[in-house]
Design a protein around this nucleic acid. Structure first.
Lengths: 146, 146
DNA sequence: CATCAATTAAGAATAAATCTTATCTGAGCC
DNA sequence: GGCTCAGATAAGATTTATTCTTAATTGATG
């Protein structure tokens, strides 16, 4: 969990390097993203934070997330829905998506990460990122089904 | 390429099985999707077809795509953009996404398909689908870069 | 402690997708 | 071949997610 502290440190560095001020909002939003595993949308982040920060505006959440994405601090997650969801970019990982409740869970898969892409792919272009997305039904939903 | 004829046949079957009429529009939209490799959005499909079908309405494209997705004949593709993109569901395949131009290319990867998921994933739930998404820059964009 | 980047409020604007109502068309059954 | 109703169309309104505008305020940092 000290990864988180490192991540925050890296975040502060990056902001400073780009001449961005360390505002309360930016810090809280990044903090929330780092400590959340639910890949929240802007709206979700907003409702998570508005209790503690009653003057926070949804607009700021959107604006701040866009900034973070530009800086490469945060990634928009690939989903089937129309709402954008985000995660603080950490090490190589993959996603399990529950088609019933929309829950999105991270997992790692070292042997996949180490695997070689098929040759046909070389011809398509230069690959920068290689990720797995699983779809299915999560355990909670499976249990809730009686 | 006779896969396509089979796919159309399966499409007609499925429609009939659900008591859906085989309208010109449905057929053309499905046909376009089957023969396109670009994973078009509703808008794109509409502009592809409106030349040949001047009375086609965008609304119909949306409505028809929704029907097809419900029937499992068409899949919405996982993307980072806000516009929904679709493909006629065929056999197991994966996606290469060009971050520069947005082009989306299919590829197959048998050894991945045959691979076992890591054990930690079993604990998450029941997996129904397992796909790879690559991000990078396609060859056209790489060439165009001088 | 002054400056200016960033936030806020309030509301307008945009984009993608969906719905409404009424009218028309044509697919599939007899 | 004609009926009937599902489905398509037109035109416009609505919804949802997101972004922008303007003007006033706040607060991080030099």
């Amino acid at each position: 969990m000290d990864d988180h502290k490192q991540q925050i440190a890296h975040f502060e560095q990056t902001c400073r390097a780009h001449g961005l001020k360390m505002t309360h909002q930016r810090l809280e939003i990044f903090h929330a993203l780092v400590h959340s595993s639910e890949h929240p949308s802007a709206e979700t982040l907003y409702s998570m934070l508005e209790k503690r920060m009653p003057t926070l505006s949804l607009d700021t959440v959107y604006r701040t997330l866009a900034t973070f994405v530009d800086l490469g601090l945060v990634k928009r997650v690939e989903t089937l829905g129309s709402k954008a969801r985000f995660e603080a970019k950490i090490d190589q990982h993959h996603h399990f998506f529950c088609d019933r409740c929309g829950q999105l869970t991270d997992f790692t898969w070292q042997s996949f990460d180490a695997s070689q892409l098929p040759e046909t792919v070389q011809e398509l272009g230069r690959v920068r990122d290689k990720n797995v997305i699983l779809h299915g039904v999560c355990n909670q939903c499976l249990k809730a089904k009686e």
